[in-house]
Computed example of a mutant assay.
Amino acid sequence: MKKALMNAEILTGHSWQDELALLIEDGQIAGICREAECPADYECENLDGRRLVPGFIDTQVNGGGGILLNEAKSLADIATIAAAHRKYGTTAMLPTLITDSWETMERVAGLIREAIATGMPGILGLHFEGPYLNAARKGVHEEVHIRTVDDRFVDLVTAGDLGKVLVTLAPEKVPTTIIRELSEKGVHVSAGHSTASFDEMQAAIAAGLTGVTHLYNAMPPMESREPGLIGAALTCSDCYCGFINDGYHVHPATLKVAIAAKGLDRMMLVTDAMSTIDTQATRLMLGNREITLKDGRLTTKDGTLAGSALDMTSAVRNAVTLLDLPLEEAIQMATAVPAEFLGLSRSHGLIARGYRADIVCLNQKFQVEKSWIAGQ
């Protein structure tokens, strides 16, 4: 079906355009033209002056709609997570598996494999956050499941049937030969839950590591004579940094420093969202531990942060209100930047001819009113 979205402000690149029609055909953006020149065979939809932006891309989603990925048992559970975040503008995501047993890793990989094979809307692949981490910076990851990487894991993530695969690991705990092998076989490797030194990070980056998971969290602070993981991340021009912009995980001033050092084109918003998204729940279980939501924070009984209650619309909004960024730049960190990180910069993250029609319609209060994934 051919569809024309009209009477909207359209974010094209870094600027807003009006009096244009956005043309969608066969799941792609067929073009952008003046409204008066809209082809007669397109079905027109009047958006009453609302805004159209690229669909948000979230590379770290632990759960949503009452489902934690670690507990997912069916394709319906995966669909529930995707649907919960779609309400907040996320049209593409990497469901994220928190450190767990091999059996759980295989089960969840099987579900994502099926989701990819059937073309489930919104699912790009799978993010393994662990279990190859440093127990000294484990956060809420269960230490009993933190272990050494082995060949069966490499075989699992390089088989080519899981879509886009992201692996968060501690570079000091994984040989650079494995990092190189993963990278060369198309896996995106990110550093997190780590005490890696500056030199260890440099070696991992040279081997193919391209990301840092929730910058500043679960890693030592940068010091004057030991820049460490953070220093390596901020000084490497090719390294992308995800960050949780909920006002709790990182102070806004600290994030402003990182943005000033890296530039917007290497900083990407992530939610690290747990299962409470799109529910009224104030409690969830992570393994045998109870996680409580209070005043916007998810914590264990001892006060340890456990993921977030953040959605991507709020993350973008916070980039404007907490980080003093223009809306266009805030949106870039939720769209074009993660698309580039995942190697999707020619198909996702922009409203432009030939790009996938993953689009979000926002009202003037920056609330999601409608979304399209591949034009649907």
Rank of each mutant, 00 (worst) to 15 (best):
V61R: 06
A258W: 00
V212C: 13
L362M: 10
A79S: 12
L133T: 10
L269R: 06
R152C: 11
Q60N: 07
I331M: 04
S275I: 08
K173V: 11
W102A: 09
P252L: 13
Y216W: 08
I123A: 10
H141V: 13
A357H: 03
R289F: 05
I10P: 02
L323P: 10
E143N: 13
G354E: 12
E223Y: 09
E143F: 04
E103L: 09
R113G: 03
L68F: 12
M120A: 09
S197F: 06
F366H: 14
C361P: 02
T118E: 14
I230F: 08
Q280Y: 02
L111S: 02
I244L: 04
N7R: 09
T313C: 11
I57P: 01
S308I: 10
G186S: 04
P252M: 06
I98Q: 08
Y240N: 05
G231Y: 12
R137P: 01
K138P: 11
V316R: 02
M105G: 03
K138L: 09
F128S: 08
T335D: 13
V165K: 02
K73A: 15
E71A: 10
A36H: 14
P131D: 12
P175G: 05
D311C: 08
V165I: 04
I81M: 07
M285H: 10
R137M: 15
E19G: 00
T279C: 09
M120E: 10
T235C: 13
N62V: 09
N288G: 09
G130L: 02
A8S: 05
T168N: 11
Q364A: 13
L111M: 11
T335P: 02
G343W: 01
A306S: 15
K3C: 14
N70P: 07
Q202K: 14
I67S: 01
I291Y: 04
H14M: 12
A83C: 12
D265F: 05
V53K: 00
R147W: 08
D100Y: 11
V250Y: 00
T299H: 11
D100N: 14
T80E: 14
A233C: 09
A83W: 00
G287P: 02
R147V: 03
L94Q: 09
I291A: 07
T313V: 15
L94E: 01
G160I: 08
N288Q: 15
G192Q: 05
E43N: 10
A136S: 15
I230W: 03
P227L: 14
I331P: 01
A204Y: 03
I81R: 07
A352D: 14
Q280M: 12
A92T: 05
G307T: 07
Q364F: 01
L124M: 13
A4T: 01
V187S: 05
D155E: 15
F56Y: 12
L111A: 12
T104I: 15
V53Q: 01
A203T: 13
C33H: 10
S197Y: 00
F128H: 13
D272L: 06
